[in-house]
Design a protein around this nucleic acid. Structure first.
Lengths: 244, 244
DNA sequence: ACGTATTTGTTCGTATGTATC
DNA sequence: GGATACATACGAACAAATACG
């Protein structure tokens, strides 16, 4: 398999072989490349030699190496463009990923201080709370919790259930256009429920995006808090997009 | 201290007292509120009663409760506005925080594939690599790793050392204006070095922002990867800002 | 919450080949 | 050829993170 004394070091030969296997699709993204021990056995070399080869792949961003987990072929992150016209659910279609979503919860509650402030209503007012899980390729990528003023959008939950779309449900209430005002981004570890919904270990971070959408008149329409799987999602902010 | 049988439950009284202490600045943000045990002793109540009071504070976002760490008064997150004209180092001045930074490393290396692509130069070309730690109120909040094409900015490292400012160093090379093209945001756990520089546990996530700055002619000037302390920083994207 | 197995990360030490002066 | 430095390769042991029951 390997060529000792050929003028090419063993680790570079191994790196090349693995590169070809990854490029050729021999191992699917997210799949295991095998443990260092296995690879060392396979190529009949020392573990250190394998490690040097892997270091090259890691440098090139072709694999993810995690202590205790193993060596995995890197997945191209889900790009999630965010601009004035971002619609959370309708965002993944462009990337040849099959989007999807399911409703977790739809209730009417009284607005917390934060929500009330964002929606510019009085605290304690009734708001619709919708919680959905967004999926790509059948795997969950986001948990979104939205709040809508119940006064202006009385049938929000029903309309959403009928159409499966926030945009459509808002349109059914006469709000045909809206755009994103601010996005606030933080990172933290998921709580038990989010970890469960996202199929995530509690040790792996989530990206938290808090946003407010407002209609043409500048009146807030929706307050949303989305949690994304941190290392599978890349939020892309492109100022230029906002102008279009 | 407390009023038993007054018609107000003990836990609500405790909650109110703690609220006032926090609001009045009796405990500084980030400081410990005391353990549940201590509080129970102080108010002469059962630990469960304290827990119920704390639950209210937690709900209101006034405290952070972490298993094994204790109860800490929530720090208002550092707001970090990001727009076309974002300058990493000059961003914190507005919030009454004393900004600062220190240079960790300044070397010339050959560009990796990723950097070369972002800067639109050939891979392997020489680039300046500057690594700095940004601080607010004496505490580190960000690690920024920047790359500049050495061909166009030959004295980048020296100019930066002289001025302590990227903007000034670029200006010294005749590049007086530039703006942010894209920002890509992910979250992950810090590696050992970042955790060390940020004074962070390796279990607490960092926000990773990759960005490209380009000059008036659209020519890329800088490729930067910034790591922020995830739960102390809030990135704020406001489309409206880009127009100003 | 806890232990156990798995897996990568790190650090010793040793031997060998290769390039340079 | 001799001396030196450096990268390559192997071996063993331990540390640290993760997954799983």
């Amino acid at each position: 398999m390997l060529n000792r004394g050929s003028g090419v070091t063993l680790w570079r030969q191994i790196e090349q072989i693995l590169r070809r296997e990854i490029a050729g699709g021999g191992v699917i993204p997210g799949g295991r490349l095998g443990t260092e021990h296995e690879l060392a056995h396979r190529f009949s070399v020392n573990r250190h030699t394998v490690r040097q080869a892997i270091a090259g792949l890691r440098e090139a961003g072709l694999v993810d190496v995690t202590q205790g987990r193993g060596i995995h072929v890197a997945e191209s992150p889900l790009e999630y463009p965010i601009s004035r016209r971002t619609r959370f659910s309708e965002n993944l279609g462009r990337q040849h990923r099959t989007p999807g979503g399911r409703l977790i919860e739809a209730v009417v509650v009284s607005a917390s201080v934060i929500v009330a402030e964002a929606l510019e209503i009085a605290p304690g007012q009734q708001v619709h709370k919708l919680k959905t899980v967004g999926e790509a390729d059948g795997r969950p990528v986001s948990v979104v919790e939205r709040h809508f003023p119940a006064g202006r959008f009385p049938d929000m939950a029903d309309r959403y259930r009928e159409t499966g779309s926030v945009t459509a449900a808002l349109a059914a209430h006469g709000c045909t256009d809206y755009e994103r005002r601010v996005s606030r981004v933080t990172a933290r570890l998921p709580d038990a429920e989010d970890a469960d919904l996202l199929g995530l270990s509690r040790r792996r971070p989530v990206l938290v995006v808090e946003s407010v959408n407002a209609d043409r008149d500048g009146l807030p329409v929706e307050h949303a808090v989305a949690r994304f799987v941190g290392d599978r999602v890349q939020l892309v902010f492109e100022p230029g997009n906002d102008l279009g």
